[in-house]
Design a binder for these strands. Structure first.
Lengths: 228, 228
DNA sequence: ACCTTAATAACACACCCGTGTCAGTACGGT
DNA sequence: ACCGTACTGACACGGGTGTGTTATTAAGGT
């Protein structure tokens, strides 16, 4: 018995657990988009993946474990999808337009980004109902996007002289405007999804650019140079 | 038979239906605050009010009818509670401070306003899942608050000369800043409830006042005149 | 070739839900 | 005093859910 156990221990026999869990995650994401995170039930996910509940319970002992994994997998997938788009280098157009295109990558302006936003909202909702002592995970991503906005707003300073621009715009003020922008983006996203007929994608773009134009700059340009 | 029906028709016999429905509404509101709108079940509300499901179904034939009534009652209650606070006349402090106190009446900064915001979110969520052809009801309230912000921002113009201020600040620009403020408030509320440890009431107040100070004015004051 | 064991699937149990039905109760008009 | 009717509460049915148990299957090491 002991000798035999020595041979068999730690040998995954048939299937790749991680791959199976990934399949489950994809099925669960489809359900989240269809019915929300509350629709992620043991039976429902198993049926969506074409399994039985018993098989699913071999990989996730609890509904809680299942949902926790799905939240984690969704967060990772969103990071892989959204971050490259946000961090894509931008050189064309005015600075206002550059920052606007960065921010618009995060807004639910078309079906693809609406899906991403719905998944993101599900993750945030999960974290709100299951606060963990290690702090919020999504808030770290929020801060990453926050830093992205900071970097973009630094580019908002006079482009000719990037060396001493920090004197005109101290870090504190840039941080403040990044925080304002961050909050404004959350509000825009909230309005777009909550009042679909009232705030359209075009309206959101106009509001966003209007706010960006109001960011104080050392060099006041002509009247409407960055308009279109 | 016909003669008797003539005497009995339209005579409510024992209880006041409206009052009973109001009792139900209060019980349902307690459940919404505890478990969300999805927790408003026929059985749950009846138990919360101390009734049986059969009695409840005498007043609401469906769960849908129950929830629709609860949403309507909640909307009315919120209007009665929040609007007077928002529309309270403000004369003291700088204009930035006046507008800030107006906006802060709508933010979930303490337990009372957190409750109101939770109820409001439940109503918005209901309207998102049950769009009605008559347009959004809550959007009308949003627009009322929007107009309140417009009026407040008009006061943001030079106080000495309210007559010709409309020339310096045309209506379009005031409308734009009111919309920006409206969106910003939504984002602030969203951040406060979604990331409780990260955006405190004080942070929200600072961000709000920073944005308000950035509203362009014809008369640039001294460096930090309205700071405290 | 056999046998252990992971993997799977089916079922059972208890709970909660919406909804329908129906018998009992109490009030108000006659 | 009586009777109809609004009101009330209890139960039943069908469906869904989480979770635990158990039998069946198949693969891999010996």
């Amino acid at each position: 018995m002991l000798a035999r156990a020595y041979y068999h221990v730690d040998v995954p026999r048939l299937v790749d657990h991680d791959q199976r869990r990934a399949e489950l995650g994809e099925a669960a994401i489809r359900i989240i988009l269809r019915e929300g995170l509350a629709g992620v039930t043991v039976r429902g996910v198993a049926a969506e993946a074409g399994w039985s509940t018993g098989s699913l319970r071999h990989y996730f002992s609890n509904q809680h474990a299942l949902q926790a994994y799905v939240v984690q997998a969704t967060t990772d997938a969103l990071r892989r999808r959204v971050l490259p788009r946000v961090q894509r280098p931008r050189t064309e157009g005015s600075v206002v337009e550059q920052v606007a295109t960065i921010v618009e990558e995060m807004l639910p302006l078309d079906d693809e980004r609406r899906e991403e936003y719905a998944l993101w909202s599900a993750v945030v909702e999960w974290e709100r109902h299951h606060p963990q002592e290690g702090g919020s995970v999504t808030w770290n991503d929020q801060r990453a996007l926050h830093r992205q906005c900071v970097a973009a707003l630094r580019g908002h300073e006079p482009v000719r002289d990037p060396g001493q621009a920090t004197a005109a715009h101290p870090d504190a003020e840039v941080e403040l405007w990044a925080a304002l922008l961050h909050t404004f983006v959350d509000g825009l996203a909230s309005q777009i999804v909550n009042t679909p007929g009232q705030v359209s994608a075009g309206t959101a773009g106009h509001l966003l650019r209007a706010l960006l134009r109001a960011v104080p700059r050392p060099d006041p340009p002509a009247h409407h140079p960055q308009n279109r």
